[in-house]
Amino acid sequence: MSSSPTKKLVIYYSLEGNTKLMAETMAKAIDADILAIAPQKEISSKGFSKYFWGGSQVMMKRKPTLMPLSLNPLDYDLIIIGTPVWAWTYSPPIATLLEEVDFSGKQMALFSCHGGQNGKTFLHMKAHLPDSQVLDTIDFFEPLKNHTEECIQRALDWARHLSQ
């Protein structure tokens, strides 16, 4: 990358911990601040109902009300956003974030964690970031269950590359 942004932020939503692991790994690697977003009403991460509820929220284009943000993303130069993949796209809490925060003019990077396919997650996210510079994307297949150390190393290398 041509210039090294001075203030870095990793924003993520995580239901089961996969996205959280990757976000924390990246933030530590590049000395970034970290912001976990959460809906005011969270679903249970247990059982089949999470898939039904999560998928239906995506299909109905629901955007949950988020808990207040503890950091202002607009105070940062490089912003990395992470999401689990639900119904082949980004999660509803990330949809709310992308609707409520204008990331115009920001350098962005996107990552996802999934248990099947990434689908059109990045294509859909980029559509909500038309005036941002999306530097790169990366996805991880269930990093808590599959090749955890390899996923951590990929996350470290990717974040460090973005931060150069």
Rank of each mutant, 00 (worst) to 15 (best):
K63R: 12
R62Y: 12
R154D: 12
H124K: 13
H124C: 10
L74S: 12
A159C: 03
I30H: 05
T83R: 05
F103W: 06
L9Q: 06
N118H: 10
I11W: 00
T148P: 05
D157M: 06
K46V: 12
S4H: 11
E99P: 00
M1V: 11
L98R: 08
R154F: 08
H128L: 09
F141W: 09
C151L: 01
R160L: 08
I43V: 05
F122G: 07
S44P: 04
S45I: 04
E100A: 13
W88Y: 14
P39G: 07
K126Q: 15
D77E: 13
I138G: 01
T65N: 12
A95G: 11
W86V: 04
S70A: 15
S2F: 12
N118C: 12
I34Y: 08
K20G: 02
L78I: 06
E42H: 07
S45C: 06
P84T: 09
P39T: 10
K46R: 13
L71S: 11
V134H: 10
A32F: 12
L66H: 11
D33P: 01
L15D: 08
T121R: 03
Y51N: 10
F140S: 08
R62G: 00
N72K: 10
S104E: 05
F140D: 05
A159K: 03
S112L: 00
Y12I: 02
D139V: 06
S112I: 00
T6C: 13
V101C: 12
E149K: 14
W158M: 02
K106N: 09
L98M: 11
E100G: 09
F103H: 07
S4W: 00
C151K: 09
T121V: 14
E24F: 05
F111Q: 02
T89C: 03
I37G: 04
S45R: 14
A155W: 02
G17P: 01
I79Q: 05
P73Q: 13
V58S: 08
A32T: 05
L123A: 15
K106P: 07
I138M: 10
D131T: 11
P93Y: 06
L74T: 13
K126V: 04
E100L: 11
L98F: 08
A155I: 01
I34M: 09
V58F: 01
K120D: 14
E16N: 13
V58C: 08
I79H: 10
W158F: 05
F111T: 02
A95R: 07
L97A: 05
S45Q: 15
Q57I: 02
A36D: 10
P84R: 07
K120I: 06
I79D: 03
K61I: 03
M125V: 01
Q40A: 13
F140E: 03
L129S: 05
S70R: 15
D33L: 03
M60A: 14
V85R: 03
Q57D: 14
T19S: 03
Q107I: 04
E149R: 09
Q57V: 03
L71F: 04
